[in-house]
Nucleic acid binder design. Structure first.
Lengths: 143, 143
DNA sequence: TCAAGTTAGTTCGAGATGCTGACCATCGTC
DNA sequence: GACGATGGTCAGCATCTCGAACTAACTTGA
C-alpha cells in the first residue's frame, strides 16, 4: 500500500524521530520532558521569546503555551523574565537545564538523520530537506 | 532560521494538512471526527482489520485503539464484526458514514497536495513522495 | 490627559488523548 | 484437557488542549 496520503507519510517518520529523541533524553535523566513541551521549547529564540509568539509558532493557544511553559519552568528548562520593552509581556528563555538537554537532543537527532541519510542516499536526503524547507514557506503560519 | 531539525520540518506540513482536512470534513457535517480517530481509521483495510493490528499500525496501545474505535462506532464511521477465523478477534470495518466521509477527506487531501505540487514543482514533489515512502520502510514499525 | 479599545498573559473548567494494570475469553500446544 | 499465549475490554490516572472569563498594561483619539 503505497497510496498512503502525504499527511500520514509525513507523520510516520516524525513519530519515529520523536520516539528516538525522547528515549535518548530519558536515558540521560531528562525524563520529565514531553513532546508537547518540546514543540514549544524548540521555538524559543536565543534572546528569549514572548508567550504569544511561542503560542503562534507552536500553533497552540496562549493558554496551552502558558500551561506548557509553567511545566518547563517548574522542571528548570526555561525561565520567564520581564520584557524590558513592555511590562505586560514576559520573555521565555532557555535555562541551565534546558541548555544541558539541547546537546543530548541534538545528538539523537543527528543519529537518526544519519540513518535516514544512509537509507536514502546523500542526494535524495538533501532534496528531502530542501523540499520540506520549501514547504514550510506555505505551511508554517508563523513564518 | 533554516536549521530546524527534520522532525519539526516534517511536523509543520503534517499539521497544516491535518488542519485543512478536518476543516473540510467539518464543513460537510463530519464535525464529530478527531485526528486521533483518523489515525486509526486510516489504517483499516478494505476487508476489515483487527484491533490489535490497528493498534500496532497506529502506534497506540490496544486500549487506546479500542477506545477510539468505540467512538468511531458510536458515530457510525465503523462497525465491529466477529472475525470468522478467530472467535476472540473482531474485525473493524468502515461503515456507511465512514465511506461517505472518505471522498470528502480525499478531496481535501488532493487539494492540499496540488498546492504543494505547484509550490515545489512536479519533479520535486514526486521526489518528496518517493523519499517519504522510502523512509517509511525504516520508520513504520508496522510494515 | 484620560476614557475606550487593544494586546499580553493568566486562571478555571471541561473534553480529548493515551498510558498502565487488571481482567476475561479463546486459541494453540503438549 | 491443562497451560501459556493472544485478542480484546474495563477502570483509573496523567497529560494535552481548548473556550470563556479575567487582570494588567499599552495605544489611540478627542
Amino acid at each position: 500500500m503505497d497510496e498512503l496520503n502525504v499527511g500520514l507519510l509525513l507523520f510516520i517518520p516524525y513519530r519515529a524521530m520523536e520516539a528516538r529523541v525522547f528515549a535518548a533524553l530519558a536515558d540521560e535523566g531528562f525524563d520529565d520532558f514531553t513532546p508537547a513541551q518540546a514543540r514549544v521549547m524548540q521555538r524559543i529564540g536565543p534572546e528569549g521569546t514572548r508567550m504569544t509568539e511561542l503560542a503562534e509558532a507552536a500553533q497552540v493557544t496562549k493558554q496551552t503555551a502558558s500551561f506548557l511553559v509553567d511545566q518547563l519552568e517548574r522542571s528548570g528548562y526555561v525561565t520567564r523574565t520581564p520584557d524590558p520593552s513592555d511590562a505586560r509581556a514576559r520573555l521565555v528563555r532557555i535555562a541551565d537545564r534546558g541548555r544541558a538537554a539541547q546537546p543530548v537532543a541534538a545528538a539523537a537527532v543527528a543519529e537518526v538523520e544519519s540513518e535516514w541519510r544512509a537509507h536514502l542516499g546523500v542526494r535524495d536526503w538533501e532534496r528531502l530537506r530542501g523540499a520540506l524547507s520549501s514547504l514550510r514557506e506555505i505551511t508554517d503560519p508563523y513564518r
